[in-house]
């Protein structure tokens, strides 16, 4: 690992000041992606600004039909503390990585990284969430801009994520057997004004909404409503773990399972 300085401020203002002063400084959330990347020398920050001591980034509450999560909340805490208000989202958080990774990994860190196989983007996009940063609010539809690409600017920190709570929802992940990342993951949500479907793991462009499935499920929120509907393989990921056609097939299958499981 390259040498770097490490700082662990206790306020958001202090963290932002360090990031602003030093172009080469980088925010460190739970570190479950960034620390392995540092070991591989894929990143070379001059300074790591740990966000883990900032209390104002820790908060889980459900009010007015919205689950509101501090950017520094861990998968473990969300899986536990959001289970009553939004079981579909909490169950998703409880499937990320493994128990030790869930202790450290945060929703802000995951969304900032926007790994094309990450779980949260499927739910945040499907539910029409809002990413709140130190300087603005970004709608999920505008936030996710492709593999590892988001609307975030340099030094911008996710302070909060607001997710409208659907009537029923479920996430089904088809895990890649070795990494346990989503080979394909589908989050389905039924709102009073229609259904939304977020698909992760499958596309070269990162998370996306499957609008044809949304239209069908808005008519009838049943697995059968998706009969005969297939996801085009064009633009989907082909790699050693599965071809584009395979991913398209899996997406359609687990979308049905998610609808059947939604509660």
């Amino acid at each position: 690992m390259y040498e770097f300085e490490f700082t662990r401020p206790t306020t958001l203002a202090d963290a932002l000041a360090v990031l602003k002063d030093d172009d080469e400084a980088q925010a460190l959330a739970g570190g479950q992606t960034l620390i392995p990347a540092l070991k591989q020398r894929l990143a070379m920050p001059s300074k790591l600004v740990s966000l883990t001591a900032i209390e104002e980034l820790r908060d889980i509450r459900a009010t007015g039909g919205v689950l509101s999560l501090g950017g520094g909340e861990t998968h473990r805490a969300i899986a536990h503390d959001a289970a009553e208000a939004f079981p579909g989202f909490a169950a998703l958080a409880g499937q990320i990585g493994d128990a030790a990774v869930r202790t450290r990994g945060t929703i802000g860190g995951s969304l900032a990284n926007n790994d094309p196989s990450a779980c949260y983007p499927a739910a945040v996009l499907a539910c029409g969430g809002t990413i709140v940063t130190d300087r603005r609010e970004i709608a999920a539809d505008d936030y996710f801009q492709g593999m590892f690409t988001t609307a975030l600017e340099e030094g911008e920190i996710i302070t909060r994520v607001n997710i409208p709570i659907p009537e029923v929802s479920a996430y089904v992940k088809f895990a890649q057997p070795a990494s346990r990342f989503a080979l394909v993951g589908v989050f389905v949500a039924r709102f009073p004004d229609g259904a939304r479907v977020g698909v992760t793991g499958a596309s070269e462009e990162g998370v996306f909404r499957w609008t044809e499935a949304e239209a069908a499920l808005s008519e009838s929120f049943t697995p059968e409503a998706l009969d005969g509907l297939s996801l085009p393989a064009e633009g989907l990921i082909s790699d050693i773990h599965g071809s584009a056609g395979y991913r398209a097939h899996i997406a359609a299958v687990i979308a049905r399972r998610a609808v059947a499981a939604a509660h």
């Binding site: 620390i35 790591l48 740990s50 030790a100 990774v101 202790t103 450290r104």
Partner: peptide
Amino acid sequence: SPVKACSIF
């Protein structure tokens, strides 16, 4: 809580 000591400073 469990953490992986190789992935935390």
